[in-house]
Write a protein that binds this DNA or RNA. Sequence first.
DNA 1: TCACATTTGTCCGTATGTATC
DNA 2: AGATACATACGGACAAATGTG
Lengths: 243, 243
Amino acid sequence: MAADSPDDLFYPVENRRSFERVSERIKDAIVDGRLKAGDRLPPETELAARLDVSRQTVREALRMLEHAGLVETPKRGSGGGTVVRNAIPETITGLFVDAMRMDSLSVDELTDARASIDALIIRFAVERLDDEDIRRLTENTAESRRLHAAGVEASMNDLEFHRVLARCSKNRIIELVANALLCVVTSILTRTPPTLEMSIKAVERHEAVVAALRRRDTEGALSEMLQHLEVVDAEIVQIAGCS
Amino acid sequence: MAADSPDDLFYPVENRRSFERVSERIKDAIVDGRLKAGDRLPPETELAARLDVSRQTVREALRMLEHAGLVETPKRGSGGGTVVRNAIPETITGLFVDAMRMDSLSVDELTDARASIDALIIRFAVERLDDEDIRRLTENTAESRRLHAAGVEASMNDLEFHRVLARCSKNRIIELVANALLCVVTSILTRTPPTLEMSIKAVERHEAVVAALRRRDTEGALSEMLQHLEVVDAEIVQIAGCS
DNA sequence: TCACATTTGTCCGTATGTATC
DNA sequence: AGATACATACGGACAAATGTG
């Protein structure tokens, strides 16, 4: 294993597969900003000709970039083609869901991580919250209330509350992780949506959190949130347990 | 957009591309546990025949799974082939690094997130720490001391300290995120490694954190860690700023 | 050491569906 | 409606790598 040492003199020569080199070249152009989201890549045939590889090789490279969330092919045919985008957060989210499905992450770990990240978000939010954030938060709880008045549960909107809250942290890394975990929760909850009664309890807690945030009461917001998550996570454990 | 409603009767018919269906089929087999890490997939030609698609289609599907970290092809030829694995955490880490390189995440966000996650880890660690954890932590600082005695800086080992600490949280989601952020830091630091002097200061702080953890002193450990990160993050900002 | 089978890596040519003008 | 542009998919072929006898 000595040859695996990173500063070994005899590290492997350029040995990678052709499509890996192609993918790397295009990826570099994207992350360096020479290609920006929305830019259209040349047609596959032209790419193949300019890179001096076959079309199959180009296509395999594009599949890697596509899964990375760096390109997509929304339309075929004339005027269509492969387009640059930046969907890395969505890709990460999808991978979290996969990891959960593979049981390489446990429900306990999920609920623990969620609670601590939401606590962390509240600490950030209290310091960085602006009027627009408060407007969004209250709009979310109001929407849940409207749904409840119409007699339907609002679990998806309740989950959205936590996304809106995550944005208040003004930190996109925290937001990204919080969102990924929320999507995992969503993937569990879609099987067995909560009852109207549970949804009402949830929005009451959410409103209490917003009220505490409004008066910059960190401890109050934390306390309400943790009690809320205790209830919700108990449901999640139950749903995940019987599947 | 009414047709996008999930419970619409006339949702789109099976319209995805062929390689996406192939990739999904294999992925399902992996996440459902019918294929386990280490299992060998059938040869591409056999897969193509059994799925009734061309080999090109199979290969494009494999490239998606490969980027997801679900398969790899370590060897070609006889006895080689595509093998199942679970490298989702590594894939997520790589995507964080990409996102950082694309400037879609800022250095401020990185240092903020890192500090709060390390604080979170310490809170978990104080409650869940066992003797083996303490042994690993002290072994890490001792290794840095040895390197310093030999006159070389130990920044890579210092980063490893945070990885070891993350494991003490006993939560693989937290560990995964912490590790991803550490890799981003590593990718910044490799350009301009810290001086021996800075490395010594770092290990002193690390030792103080371990001492506090040993006596289950949460506030002490937090305080040492936050002061430590303040110094380190200042360096990171400086390095990242002049690139 | 030398064939030999296996399996991936890569290329070419062709046909087809789809979207734009 | 027809021509054009482009991705999707198929088939066949050969090179290169790897393990086996």
